[in-house]
């Protein structure tokens, strides 16, 4: 079980969190024309990286805030967590 530092609450056990997937995906703006490819990339295409991965987590059994974490997918090392409004 990982130990995840919620940027709002501090160190908590993994079971308090829900994983939210790739944290670098950017939703196309509303009402903007987007190509099929652009849209498919946003909805479906995800990299399965080995190594540093920026991802979203949701402190679902805590403060209910979404935040980003930089984690190594091979070793589970978490280098950094940051609020959505902060740079990671």
């Amino acid at each position: 079980m990982l130990n995840i530092k919620c940027p709002y609450c501090g160190d908590r056990a993994q079971k308090e969190f829900a994983y939210g997937g790739d944290g670098t995906v950017k939703r196309p703006e509303l009402n903007k024309e987007v190509s099929n490819k652009e849209w498919d990339d946003f909805v479906y295409m995800r990299k399965s990286l080995r190594g540093k991965h920026i991802e979203l987590w949701h402190h679902i059994s805590g403060c209910r805030q979404w935040f980003r974490a930089q984690r190594d997918t091979a070793t589970h090392e978490i280098f950094k967590t940051a609020k959505i409004s902060e740079e990671i």
Binding site: H58, Q65, I84, S85
Partner: peptide, 12 residues
């Protein structure tokens, strides 16, 4: 969770 995601991450 869905609403929170859009409010916090996509359209803060």
């Amino acid at each position: 969770s869905h609403l929170e995601y859009y409010l916090q991450v996509v359209w803060p």
